[in-house]
Simulated scan of single mutants.
Amino acid sequence: MQRAFLSLFLLLLVLGCGLTKAHATELNSRPLVKDTIVIRLPNQATITLVVRDAAQLRQMKNYQLDSLTSRLAGYIVQAETAAKTATTDQVTLQFYPDKDQPGKNLPEQIRITTRKKKPSTNRVDVMLNKTFGVTVTTDDKGSKSYNTSEGKSKEERIAQRDSARLKKIKNKRTSAELVVDLGVNALINQKALDTTPGQSEAPDLRTEGSRYVNIGLDWNTRLGGKRSPMSLTFGPHFAFNNYMLNGNTKWVNDNGITSVVRETDGRQYQKSKLGTSSVNLPVMLRLQLRDKHYKSTFALGAGGFVGYRIKSWTKLKYTTDGNTLKDKEDGSYNMENFLYGVQGTIGYGSLELFAKYNMNSLFRANAGPDTQVLSFGLRLFGD
């Protein structure tokens, strides 16, 4: 260290002594202006020397450089020790060599500012969709730490998520979403069919087998301001209805009349059902409330629908001589082609239930059981 400082000051002396007289005169003519010499060492350290004129620079040779460099080494040790025990990140110490040893041409004051040494770290950030991140930090000893908070407090992360949700709500006046409903069908408001006694029975559905499946695409258009909870929902839906019978009965279309008759030839049915598919267009008003973090809470929707029957069929499954057989027959079975009714949804958070009531009869007048359909169940996808 002593040789390094000695070489530095000798370099400064050479620079100072090499200044021309004309330059010195120019400096003296402007005593308020100071010159700055900056020296960058190979170890990335920087030494800055500020002088008023060349005369001050030449006076550097009067100092005992060997003694100064040794004294600086001691001062630096004291400063580093003070920084380790300090309560702040930065410590400044001042030394007065000339007062300690008068008459030796030592500097009047030396000021050293040191900071606490922080361990060198190597940090890698892995981000997903700008909302979830993992930070891997490696310290100077090779130890790794993992943090999913991205360096932010819990309150900051909550505020960031809330802001993202609010921005999404305000910026999207119209949105589209996939809707999938799973439920069951029930026949209600049944009236007796005027047929020959003993020839037919009232439909008695097996609940777990009378499934309802609906797949649709809804467009939601917000009504009102950017934070309005009201929206208009509409879009195409495709529905599949199954009407599975209890007991050993089957759906029969005979002489233009669809009825439910009991099997008499000894065949035992494992499944006996009537199935339909239809396309529908629902139109609903929807109320969507949110909490203080803009997450969906209570939701309520109500409206109507119109539709058209695409196809219908019957399917029988039974066992004969140890063999399982399936009979399927397509046909209209005197069912209504045009459909209409009312429907609604209610939910909280991610849980949502639906109900759908067909106001028209399932079959044409005097061509089948006089009954209507109620479908209800769980909405799996949707807002």
Rank of each mutant, 00 (worst) to 15 (best):
N214L: 06
P42L: 04
N43D: 15
T233Y: 03
D291A: 08
L325Q: 14
A176K: 05
T148Q: 09
T36R: 14
V373R: 06
K141R: 02
V77C: 05
F9I: 15
K167S: 13
T195R: 13
T258K: 11
L10I: 13
F305A: 11
S361D: 12
V77T: 13
T324R: 02
A186T: 07
A186H: 03
I158M: 08
E336G: 09
M1W: 01
W313R: 10
K317G: 04
L15Y: 09
R58Y: 08
L27N: 11
T121N: 09
G256S: 15
T131S: 14
A83I: 00
N280I: 03
P203K: 14
R40P: 07
S278N: 03
N62M: 04
E201M: 03
N255D: 13
L128T: 07
T131W: 03
Q56I: 00
E155M: 03
E177A: 05
V124F: 02
Y269Q: 06
Q44D: 06
G349Q: 04
H237I: 11
L281E: 04
G275R: 11
P119D: 12
N43V: 08
T297G: 08
E26T: 08
S278F: 15
R40H: 08
V51M: 08
L182R: 01
L353T: 11
N220P: 15
T264M: 01
R123D: 10
Q268W: 09
N241I: 04
D330I: 03
M1I: 02
D98F: 00
D162R: 15
L10P: 00
T114D: 06
V306S: 12
A79T: 14
L57G: 09
E177G: 06
G347Q: 11
I37D: 12
Q94M: 01
T69I: 02
M230S: 10
S312C: 01
K250C: 10
P102S: 03
S120R: 13
S7F: 05
L245M: 14
V51L: 01
K104S: 00
E329C: 05
T36I: 03
Y318G: 00
S210G: 07
L205I: 07
L245Y: 13
K99S: 13
L57V: 10
L49E: 02
I169W: 02
D181E: 05
L32S: 09
T345N: 06
V252L: 12
T85F: 01
D383Q: 08
G74R: 07
P229A: 07
Q343T: 02
Q372S: 05
K99C: 00
I112V: 04
Q109H: 07
T264Q: 14
N43F: 00
D98K: 07
M335N: 03
S278V: 15
D194T: 15
K130Y: 00
P197W: 02
N337L: 01
N242V: 11
K356V: 13
M60D: 09
L19K: 15
A45P: 12
N253T: 14
D125K: 14
V283D: 01
K191V: 00
D330N: 08
D181H: 10
I110P: 15
V180C: 02
E108R: 10
A186D: 05
L351Y: 03
N189D: 08
G216I: 12
R71E: 14
L13Y: 07
T138M: 12
V51R: 07
S350M: 01
L353S: 05
P107H: 02
